[in-house]
């Protein structure tokens, strides 16, 4: 996806994130029920400006962990530090984009993006910033549209612009492209990389898509239960994979194909990967 407008370079605060022994246990739903431990002892350090992808089987607590980082929910154990200070409640340094665009249907795209602006932003400066961000995500022509008048991909781009309007130190993305069609998803991935190059904030994203994780992230974190643990056991960090190669990466890279096979096995999905293929590529 092409960026049609020059991007104003801004001094951008990218914050490191430290997850220290975080656990989240949900109270029982009804009397006599059992408390459900979703996460336990999660430790993770994310450097400022890094892109980290969280992957894991459905229901393993990826989104729960994101909610702890963004302050939408509070951990029952441990704590999360952004730039050295603990997260308590909704954090100004964090911006979230959800799987659904969640735009306010009665506002135009520009007005929706303006919601993301930090409190007390000067009116003209705010309007200028909104225009700039909408151009950054390729919606410069569509500022006056309402969410129901645009496609899902466009709405999701507006949602990304809204998150960026917050000038976040940490950008938290919960399966941001999960609801999009395959082609739009590939374009959005490139858009995210362009946005990250223009505004290099720390990005923590959840995805179901191993290829997406390998294409976007500096490191991929596999969340899950320990091997052999019962299904009611809480999830933790199974492994952290550092993805080789500078972005933009070749989606067909053999090294990535090998990592992909490993991660899929880690997710409990047989990859049917034939190892000598990769070896053949290495020998070239």
């Amino acid at each position: 996806m092409a960026i049609t407008a020059p991007i104003t370079v801004r001094s951008h605060p990218a914050h490191p994130v430290a997850v220290r022994g975080v656990g989240r246990t949900f109270p029982p739903r009804d009397r006599g029920g059992r408390a459900k431990a979703v996460l336990a002892d999660v430790d993770l350090d994310i450097a400022a400006g890094e892109i980290v992808a969280l992957i894991g089987a459905s229901g393993c607590g990826k989104s729960t962990l994101l909610r702890q980082v963004s302050g939408l929910d509070a951990p029952t154990a441990g704590q999360i530090l952004i730039d050295g200070t603990p997260v308590a409640g909704i954090d100004d340094r964090c911006a979230v984009a959800f799987q659904e665009p969640r735009l306010l249907p009665w506002r135009t795209l520009a007005q929706n993006v303006a919601i993301g602006l930090p409190r007390g932003t000067d009116r003209t400066a705010g309007a200028q910033r909104v225009t700039e961000l909408l151009e950054l995500v390729g919606l410069g022509e569509c500022t006056g549209y309402r969410p129901r008048q645009v496609s899902g991909g466009m709405a999701q781009r507006a949602s990304l612009a809204r998150a960026l309007a917050r000038n976040p130190g940490v950008l938290v993305l919960d399966e941001p492209f999960g609801a999009l069609d395959a082609l739009t998803r590939l374009k959005m991935q490139d858009l995210l990389l362009e946005v990250h190059a223009a505004e290099p904030t720390t990005v923590l994203l959840v995805t179901h898509d191993v290829d997406e994780a390998l294409y976007l992230a500096d490191r991929v974190v596999l969340l899950g239960r320990p091997d052999g643990a019962p299904t009611s056991a809480p999830a933790g960090v199974r492994s952290v994979v550092t993805v080789p190669g500078a972005r933009p990466r070749d989606r067909a890279d053999a090294q990535l194909a090998l990592l992909r096979a490993q991660l899929l096995e880690g997710l409990g999905v047989p990859s049917h990967h034939v190892a000598h293929d990769a070896d053949a590529h290495h020998s070239i």
């Binding site: 963004s70 939408l72 909704i90 100004d92 979230v96 969640r102 306010l104 919601i115 409190r119 917050r166």
Partner: peptide
């Protein structure tokens, strides 16, 4: 969902 999005953007 909308309420949560609003909360995530500091509205309360």
């Amino acid at each position: 969902h909308l309420v949560e999005a609003g909360r995530a953007y500091g509205l309360r």
